[in-house]
């Protein structure tokens, strides 16, 4: 039976597609970050392309091979590469090698602390280097799936098979382990430091309340959750993985326990990327059919930023002020929107 859609949703919503500055990166993009007002599109290999708000591009060679992961604090971008290097790109466009794995293994994950400490992982080992400090390492029982610094103190969450290890690199003694069966791939602390959430290999999130280790299971996704973002103030956790944006409530002390998530912006495609506005209850969502929507979290109102053309959206980010949104798809078809 052919699809019959009398509502013509796509045409009825407010569109700002004509205000997007198109950018052609020319190669696959895995992430976008802002260095000041410049959007930095991280390619799948070799290059980061810096783009100013007017759309002028300047590519920067950062790696010889694949760029496997990246993170940014707005001042610099830290990238893990497939030649065992941790590479840093700063606001001036200068590239430096921060660390090199002795065995030249893949750098699978990176994390940045607000104080400037950098964490990375290769195989089962997580490394941390604080500014002016020495490199410290910690080995977990299986390959590191993801890293995240706690918002306070120098504490690193290391996701792995069957749980997460919480490591204080500056303290001797045993690390704390939060156990949950299965493979944990992504990890994030809530901005208030009360909760830890992992994205699992199976289509589910798992959370712990840090004060008592209480478990939170967040399930029901049709696909693996690859993109998670805390809404302004940490009230909600927006996630990809379904045909709507799923937002778990974290405002109360119990987090999402016993509560239903909000489901916003349903489309006939899967959400692949989410990015929350840094100040307002607004998020951007990218879909597998190339659509990008801006969604008001309070009432679900939608604004069309990119129509459903092209490859799955693979990168999405706001600048720190929340005045610019950058996006790209898997083929490097990208854009900038000034609000």
């Amino acid at each position: 039976m052919p699809d019959f859609n009398p509502l013509q949703e796509q045409e009825s919503i407010v569109s700002v597609t004509d205000r997007v500055v198109p950018v052609a990166i020319g190669a696959g993009v895995t992430a976008v970050h802002f260095l000041g007002d410049k959007a930095a599109f991280v390619g799948v290999e070799e290059k980061v392309t810096l783009v100013d708000p007017a759309g002028a591009t300047s590519p920067v060679e950062v790696a010889f091979g694949g760029i496997l992961c990246s993170t940014s604090d707005g001042k610099r971008i830290v990238m893990g590469c497939d030649d065992g290097k941790v590479v840093v790109l700063d606001r001036e466009g200068a590239v430096s090698t921060f660390a090199t794995d002795a065995k030249r293994r893949w750098i699978d994950s990176v994390a940045l602390h607000p104080d400037g400490a950098v964490a990375w992982s290769a195989g089962k080992t997580a490394f941390v280097q604080a500014p002016k400090g020495e490199v410290k390492s910690f080995e977990v029982p299986s390959t590191v799936g993801g890293l995240a610094f706690a918002p306070k103190g120098l504490r690193l969450a290391i996701a792995h098979y069957n749980g997460v290890t919480l490591w204080f690199p500056n303290m001797a003694g045993n690390a704390e382990v939060l156990e949950w069966a299965g493979s944990h791939l992504g990890v994030t602390f809530s901005p208030d430091n009360k909760f830890l959430v992992t994205a699992m290999h199976e289509p589910a999130l798992h959370g712990w309340r840090l004060v008592d280790g209480k478990h939170m299971r967040m399930t029901g996704y049709p696909a693996r959750v690859r993109s998670i973002a805390w809404s302004a103030g940490g009230k909600g956790l927006a996630t990809s993985g379904a045909d709507t944006v799923i937002i778990w409530p974290f405002a109360s002390k119990d987090g999402p326990m016993g509560k239903e998530p909000a489901m916003l912006a349903p489309l006939k495609a899967k959400v692949t990327m989410v990015a929350c506005h840094p100040k307002q209850d607004i998020l951007a969502a990218g879909y597998s059919d190339g659509t990008i929507l801006m969604v008001r979290i309070t009432d679900g109102a939608e604004i069309l930023i990119r129509a459903n053309k092209g490859q799955p959206v693979s990168a999405l980010a706001w600048n720190a002020k929340g005045t610019l949104l950058a996006f790209a798809d898997q083929d490097g078809d990208a854009g900038l929107l000034e609000l």
């Binding site: 065995k103 293994r105 893949w106 195989g123 089962k124 299986s142 390959t143 098979y161 069966a181 299965g182 493979s183 699992m200 290999h201 199976e202």
Partner: peptide
């Protein structure tokens, strides 16, 4: 290089 890490699906 791989690590041959086998795990059970949940």
């Amino acid at each position: 290089g791989a690590d041959e890490e086998v795990f059970e699906m949940n």
